[in-house]
Amino acid sequence: MLSADLTRKIDRELTKYPPDQKQSAVMAALGYAQDEHGWLSTDLMDAVARYLDMPPVAVYEVASFYTMYNMRPQGRFKVTICTNLPCALSGANAAANHLKEKLGVDFNETTADGKFTLKEGECMGACGDAPVLLVNDRRMCGHMSHAKLDELVGELSAAADRGEGRPGFDPEHGIHVK
């Protein structure tokens, strides 16, 4: 379940903590596992639990506590836009609405082609760049005018066509995450 690349990344994280505190690496481990698999299935969490000598339920607790972990399959690109007050004061809601229209989905939904999942986020610590959004948890984009949003969607859509982004969504069964 855990690829060699994944265990190598986890092993590097493990060097940061005392040897008897392997559990400390669980957040990073789940993050990398999610990068590779797109979402955290029960089997995947089980495998991480085994790798880090943790009770599976403790991994499940962590995975479900932090909002950036995907507990269900997502589109290739998960776009999380902050709508908290400071961002809202600088056009975040308009940006979010623009995205919803453009992608034809509401928050917590995935486009039928499996390319995008749209999420509402909380403060990302970048309110000065509002509106801000996060692509697949790793890439932050700021000052998202409608034009820049259009550009981004175009770029990601093309990337998805090339098979980039994260696996996980199954367009054949058209999973809509609600």
Partner: peptide, 22 residues
């Protein structure tokens, strides 16, 4: 050590728990 989306981890003891992998 990086977080994964939880405002509460800014609270110092929650942050410590989070470092401990909880």
């Amino acid at each position: 050590h990086h977080g994964f989306g939880a405002y509460i981890c800014g609270e110092e003891t929650a942050l410590l728990e989070s470092i401990e992998g909880k």
